[in-house]
């Protein structure tokens, strides 16, 4: 009788540039339902942060409330974490980021946490272009309260109990695009080959990076008629392109014919390599991304992959010209410059 993860790992587990194996990026064993898509997303985050050789203590993971927001316990145990109030993760993330811009911020939320109670917070964190990766584990239902339809459930999607959703869904990717998001992607928990490079690209992006991940709820929303079920998503999944993430200083080795491939160089010098691009879609054109999303919605498809990226994105710190130094390292001298400094400021306002 147990629910216990053994301490042994594969003796040939690869090491990253820091000399760590994946084990140093793991979290506690998940207590979510067996087969939950969220666990796959956690594993993809572990894989991505390991592969990017990010020191775990450089990462802060933040979440709200819900099944999705429990997951930071299940990845990156050696990182900083903050499990905040329902729908209020963006505020906490904003505060943390403003206090220390040197850290890497991973926000984890769900469709309830972001598209219902946290919709207002979501809108503002997008438009401020806070430098963070914002992952929505989107299962179209309230899994923690027995599977009621959430605000992202598609019209006509059938719940496990048999009721059909009558309300229009909020498409967080489209909303984010309209609010000026600088990195928008959609993926599927059951497709790590796509999800891992997207997470790596999002973590390398300077500015707000949204990944809306369709993540089936095996317990309450994996039934025939649901548009967020494993088999439905597999059957209706389309991609904007295949994604490869090539970190800075690594050679691009995949060869594709002309016109089939396109590289987007990121702020830090790494490259997102895109192959087999969808026609009429341009990853750096916001309108083409919105069109592509709308068209696939019309056809009942789930459009995944990178949707939009703005390589010259200006994140919040750059916009408000805040200090480069983390606040905790500022001394009293810098924080309280004295009455003469105040006088100078007051004079400038007169």
């Amino acid at each position: 009788m147990s629910y216990f993860r053994p301490g042994f790992r594969h003796p040939e587990l690869p090491k990253n540039d820091l000399g760590y194996t994946k084990q140093q990026y793991e979290g506690a064993i998940s207590t979510l339902c067996a087969g939950c898509g969220h666990d796959s997303i956690s594993a993809a985050i572990v894989q991505s942060v390991f592969e990017l050789s990010i020191a775990p203590h450089q990462v802060a993971k933040l979440s709200g409330i819900g099944c999705s927001s429990k997951t930071p316990t299940y990845f990156l145990s050696n990182s900083h974490g903050f499990n905040s109030v329902h729908g209020r993760m963006p505020s906490v993330a904003t505060g943390a980021n403003l206090a220390n811009r040197d850290m890497i911020y991973i926000g984890v939320s769900g469709d309830g946490d972001s598209a219902s109670i946290g919709m207002g917070q979501f809108a503002h964190v997008v438009r401020r272009n806070l430098n963070m990766m914002y992952v929505v584990m989107n299962n179209g239902c309230y899994g923690l309260t027995k599977g009621q339809d959430s605000a992202t459930a598609d019209v006509g999607s059938r719940s496990k109990a048999g009721s059909v959703n009558r309300f229009e869904p909020i498409d967080l990717a489209s909303v984010a695009l309209q609010l000026g998001a600088t990195f928008v992607a959609r993926s599927f928990s059951g497709d790590k080959e796509q999800l891992v490079p997207l997470i790596k690209a999002a973590l390398s992006h300077s500015g707000f990076a949204l990944i809306d991940v369709v993540s089936p709820c095996v317990t309450f929303n994996n039934n025939p008629g649901s548009t967020k079920a494993y088999d439905y998503v597999r059957q209706h999944m389309q991609t904007t392109s295949l994604v490869d993430f090539v970190p800075m200083a690594e050679e691009i080795t995949t060869a594709y014919g002309e016109g089939e491939s396109r590289g987007v160089t990121m702020h830090d010098g790494s490259v997102i390599q895109l192959h087999k691009l969808r026609t009429e879609w341009n990853p750096e054109d916001r309108q083409s991304a919105l069109n592509a999303l709308a068209e696939s919605r019309e056809r009942g498809e789930v459009l995944t992959g990178l949707l939009y990226v703005e390589r010259d994105s200006r994140e919040l710190h750059e916009t408000i010209n805040s200090t480069r130094t983390p606040l905790r390292t500022l001394t009293e001298k810098e924080l309280c410059p004295g009455s003469s400094a105040l006088e100078t400021i007051n004079n400038s306002l007169r």
């Binding site: 666990d39 796959s40 594993a43 928990s189 088999d231």
Partner: peptide
């Protein structure tokens, strides 16, 4: 159903 749960949890 290829949910990957086994892949993710396998310690080795």
């Amino acid at each position: 159903i290829e949910c990957d749960a086994c892949v993710d949890v396998c310690p080795v």
